[in-house]
Design a binder for these strands. Structure first.
Length: 367
RNA sequence: GCCCCCAUAGUCUAGCGGCCCAGGACGUCACCCUUUCAAGGUGAAGAUCGCGGGUUCGAAUCCCGCUGGGGGUACCA
């Protein structure tokens, strides 16, 4: 050995474990965990390059920082007894340990970069709110009473205890995360706050002017009323551009004219209805939702249509889609001028459109 | 292979010997509301408490075995 040292042979420094006896670690969640010393390996402490491994570094560092409790993932359980012996070898008191349950990916296996998102930035980019993520994560492996589900950061700080952490691993459920996100978007955040959070996504989609995004941003007052109407169906902020686009764009993206014609109505009926709408629009004040609704219902009667049969074509004409918030609040926020232009556009499109033959048999699947 | 952790519905979770033939939530389904979609409201289905042995007057709750899932097994953390 001395010869090797003299020759400068590359080497590492290991931590020698006893060959007999056992070492037990007291875990705050799992109680006593006992290991046979014969099974503990002689971990490398210093690598060939002279740098310490995590095992040496974490012990020294935590001691110097006077760490009292170590909470880490349960993948560290197997090395815990060795770390304990390291503290002992240094003659230091070991901190208390708690090995937290792992989070499993939906398909099984430890959640990782390959299997689901792990970086906070990814969740942010996908439109998840920090509040929602924190709330969801807190309840994955912990519960206050099995019933309470919404927790603010401060409430979590107040009520969280190690004792109520469930040691069994949990599966990450995007469904539930989305539900929490939607709850915060629809019921917790103020309208101003939500508007501010949505704006970067709208900006990135080119729907509004570039940032910085604050209450002084030129589009803030345009975005806010649209967000007010859509907030109950925004699950993630990333969905906002698609859901809100037609409120912000001067003109609609091209849509399929077939959408204008509801089931059980003909092109001719819809055309007549939209022409009638176009005709009354100049005398309608869309800012007055109630009056507008009364006028539209009266028009439906005059045309011999059910209200819904009139509303749907108008909805599509004005939004380009069959799903939207209530029609009259939508008209109000889009504004009279654009409403008139879009209805006129729809009439023109419908005139130029011929319904496709309704196939009486399902089309044969092409090969 | 060897070592270790875990085990209540598809998922998260309450339960810490009798109040549980198991409570809450997501998801699913139905109904209500309704101008669409949501949101909201009401209700339903869904768990032989992984299996088998014990202990006990009594077990989801305690003990043992098995099975299953997960982690570790690097000069990565």
């Amino acid at each position: 050995m001395q010869a090797h040292l003299d020759a400068g042979t590359p080497h590492v420094i290991r931590f020698r474990m006893p060959l007999e006896g056992e070492t037990s670690v007291h875990d705050l969640l799992r109680g006593e965990m006992t290991f046979q010393n014969a099974n503990l390996e002689d971990l490398v402490l210093l690598k060939t390059d002279g740098y310490p491994t995590y095992h040496l570094a974490n012990v020294v560092d935590d001691h110097l920082m006077e760490i009292s409790h170590i909470l880490r993932g349960e993948e560290w359980i197997p090395t815990a007894p060795i770390h304990l012996r390291l503290y002992d070898a240094f003659g230091w008191d070991a901190p208390k340990f708690a090995h937290m349950p792992l989070i499993l990916a939906p398909g099984g296996g430890k959640l990782s970069k390959r299997h689901g998102s792990t970086a906070m930035e990814e969740f942010r980019a996908q439109g998840y709110l920090p509040e929602a993520l924190m709330n969801y994560l807190a309840l994955l492996g912990w519960s206050l009473d099995g019933t309470t589900e919404m927790f603010s950061r401060d409430e979590l700080l107040e009520t969280f205890t190690l004792e109520r952490v469930n040691p069994s691993p949990g599966t990450f459920d995007y469904n539930k995360l989305r539900w929490f996100n939607q709850q915060y978007i629809n019921h917790v955040l103020s309208l101003d706050d939500l508007t501010l959070r949505v704006m970067p996504f709208l900006g990135a989609a080119g729907l509004i002017a570039p940032g910085p995004f604050g209450p002084e941003h030129p589009d803030f007052t345009r975005v806010r009323p649209a967000v007010a109407l859509l907030k109950d169906r925004i699950e993630t902020l990333a969905q906002a551009p698609d859901l809100i686009g037609y409120f912000l764009l001067p003109d609609l993206e091209p849509y399929d004219p077939a959408l204008l014609v509801p089931k059980k109505m003909t092109r001719e009926q819809v055309l007549a209805a939209l022409e009638a709408v176009e005709a009354i629009l100049p005398e309608v004040d869309v800012d007055n939702e109630e009056a507008t609704e009364v006028r539209f219902r009266t028009l439906a009667d005059e045309l011999g249509l059910k209200a819904g049969s009139l509303f749907m074509p108008v909805r599509v004409a004005v939004t380009g889609r069959t799903q939207s918030p209530g029609l009259f609040e939508t008209l109000r926020v889009i504004g009279g001028e654009r409403v008139r232009a879009r209805v006129a556009e729809a009439v023109a499109r419908l005139r130029a459109w011929t319904p496709a033959e309704q196939p009486t048999e399902p089309a044969h699947a092409g090969s």
